[in-house]
């Protein structure tokens, strides 16, 4: 299962265009800042509507201008890990983690809280408020929240960008395990060549 994406979208006087079909594993959108990488991710997530094109993940069409298909973001089952974490500041870590889990169809859940906590090593954080977490801790929780929402695929927008060196290694190891152990298709955005070469199965240059 993998991505089949062909989209264009005009934003101001800029046209963002991307076309790629990844294999299974981690597909990295790689390019300089401002190339529209995050916009492509938002289009796959359903947060930004393309002007034309199609977006398929596995055999499910999320968007197709030709067939008039445009699934709303809430029905795309994307596990989106944002660059800025976006943990809900008024909910403790446990409630952040369970936000998507509670909304997911029970039959489609494939991970429970205990598994996610063990996988990410965040058991000691469950009762904390988001603003008390370090950058690395918050990013782990953000990944956990995405995994628990029963996603069919992951979208990761520069998840390492705001972390220091040691934390980067740490989260990178987690991403490798997501790719190899959970076998989730991952669409990954980065401007860091080293990072992309280390993680990607498929590299899509974007400029």
């Amino acid at each position: 299962m993998s991505f089949d994406v062909c989209v264009t979208r005009q934003l101001g006087d800029r046209v963002i265009a991307a076309e790629f079909a990844g294999e299974a594993g981690l597909t990295a959108l790689f390019g300089p800042s401002g190339a529209g990488k995050s916009s492509v991710l938002n289009m796959v997530a359903g947060l930004l509507r393309p002007d034309a094109g199609h977006i398929m993940v596995g055999d499910v069409t999320l968007y197709s201008s030709a067939d008039g298909i445009d699934r709303p973001a809430r029905a795309r089952r994307a596990g989106y890990v944002f660059q800025d974490g976006r943990l809900f500041p008024h909910k403790r870590v446990r409630d952040n983690l369970l936000y998507g889990w509670n909304l997911a169809n029970p039959a489609e859940r494939w991970m429970d809280l205990d598994e996610a906590v063990r996988f990410l090593g965040i058991g000691h954080l469950l009762n904390r408020w988001p603003h008390t977490l370090s950058g690395g801790e918050a990013q782990r929780v953000a990944i956990g929240r995405a995994l628990l929402s029963a996603p069919r695929f992951l979208l990761m927008d520069e998840p390492l960008a705001s972390l220091d060196r040691a934390r980067r290694e740490d989260i990178m190891a987690v991403i490798v395990r997501l790719r190899d152990e959970l076998k989730l298709p991952i669409l990954y955005v980065s401007h860091d060549r080293e990072e992309v070469e280390q993680l990607a199965t498929t590299i899509v240059p974007l400029d």
Partner: peptide
């Protein structure tokens, strides 16, 4: 509003 977008990707409807 980015928090609202995050909630939407987690499966929440507008009213939720």
């Amino acid at each position: 509003r980015r928090l609202e977008a995050a909630a939407e990707t987690l499966g929440a409807s507008r009213t939720h």
